[in-house]
Design a protein around this nucleic acid. Sequence first.
DNA 1: TATTCCATCCCCATTTCTTGGTATGTTTTG
DNA 2: CAAAACATACCAAGAAATGGGGATGGAATA
Lengths: 269, 269
Amino acid sequence: MGDLHGQRVGNAPAIERSVMRLVLADDLISVVTSANSESDLSAALHTATSRLGFDHFALSYDCRPGSRDGTSLLVHDYPDAWAKLYVGFDLGGNDPVRRACGKSMSGFEWRHIENLIPLTRGDRRMLKVGRESGIGDGYTVPRHLPGEANGSCSFVVRPDATLPRSMLHIAEIVGAIALASARKIVGAVAPKSRPVLSERQRECVLWSARGKTAAEIAVILAISEETVIQHLKLARERYDVHSRQSLVLCAMFDGLISFADVFHWWAGT
Amino acid sequence: MGDLHGQRVGNAPAIERSVMRLVLADDLISVVTSANSESDLSAALHTATSRLGFDHFALSYDCRPGSRDGTSLLVHDYPDAWAKLYVGFDLGGNDPVRRACGKSMSGFEWRHIENLIPLTRGDRRMLKVGRESGIGDGYTVPRHLPGEANGSCSFVVRPDATLPRSMLHIAEIVGAIALASARKIVGAVAPKSRPVLSERQRECVLWSARGKTAAEIAVILAISEETVIQHLKLARERYDVHSRQSLVLCAMFDGLISFADVFHWWAGT
DNA sequence: TATTCCATCCCCATTTCTTGGTATGTTTTG
DNA sequence: CAAAACATACCAAGAAATGGGGATGGAATA
């Protein structure tokens, strides 16, 4: 084996551990990927949690962040004491981990949470109560779909234990896949035959989303203003909506235009 | 991942490949993590790209409008032909990969892009032109921070090559870390500079997003139409936009309203 | 306590959008 | 090939949105 890309691989036990980690990762990934129901997902995460060296997990997926009657999914195996406190006092709205999720693109250790958000006294009190209820340090994988959903998947150890640091990257992948599965489960967004706009219609909608008027779009696309109006008219009829706001939203929901399309252009101007 | 799952300890070449992959992953992660400038990041991604078995990479990171300096970052090593076409014809606004980023929580293969968004003829044409310019299949890792930024990191192979599937999970991690580094380089946006709408303003924007006119919103909220117009006016000024389309998009990007807010209401009415 | 922000209401001039038509030539597709 | 879809262009009436002025009372906050 020896020298790989300039790095010594190390001794035999190290190799064995590496192989074990990778095989473990592949195993867990396939298990979590195949989860097609809430109970499947819970079982898969339970398995992953213990085999990665954690004590607890919690996955939450909210289609409507901050609202009440939205589709949401919460699976966890937290100690009863903590679960009761958390749900009973609606601590979710004040959870610093949850807040930190909005500030990170990838997984983070709870011990480093102050690098992401400032902690208030209430936050520290909450973390302390958590420790008293069996919740120690943790690693949380956040994911966001602007305008659609927020989710997080946390792997947690007991108060007297330390995070299995060599497993964090695997936890990151497993967590991400678990969230994708969660989205599949609650979303169940069937790829139905949606009304697709023609290319020209899409362009007009995009420029409209960027805040341009029909006259401006006409100049940009080098066509008549009447033609632009016609394209937008037909596009509205396709979606059966009567305003540009709704038209833009429909096009965005269908993935015909994206935030990046709009904001990137804004940034470059 | 099924192809990975089949690999088992006991097969010497398989073990070697596994160890190589892990060592490679650890190696690349530390290289990409330590990137502290645009050129660092470019070099790190260049290394990662070739060692993962890809031919090209492209990372883009876009901050939301309103943030001051360095609102976006783009590093890539695409062939000149494609880069010139892409920039010259402003193909970014039509890029289906970019659009698909808004619909996925984790990395996706370009060949499966139709599972995420519908492809128009123009999209297919663009992909075809890409292939003629040396851009084949790819794997893109998207990340979103509501109200702050969108980013994506793509790893691409030549048209005649196939994606190194066993490396995709490592690509996912490397891509995520690269985006985190990009965020570090560009600089996190101060959250207080973000315009926040008042509750009433937000309500008006939401009903506007649902396709209601000012007069209708007035009836719904039981206030004067003039008041509704005033709320929307102030909201537009906060975001410095001049159309309801843009206003709705800004509010949605900031997480003040969501697709669920709009479409669930549509569904339930 | 003073100031700022919020919610509410009003007016007016101008621009833009929506809706209803019609029309011609090209491209795609069954 | 024929039918359908697309891109282009035009007209006209009425509805809606935008941008510019104001004004009041209350709540929060510094």
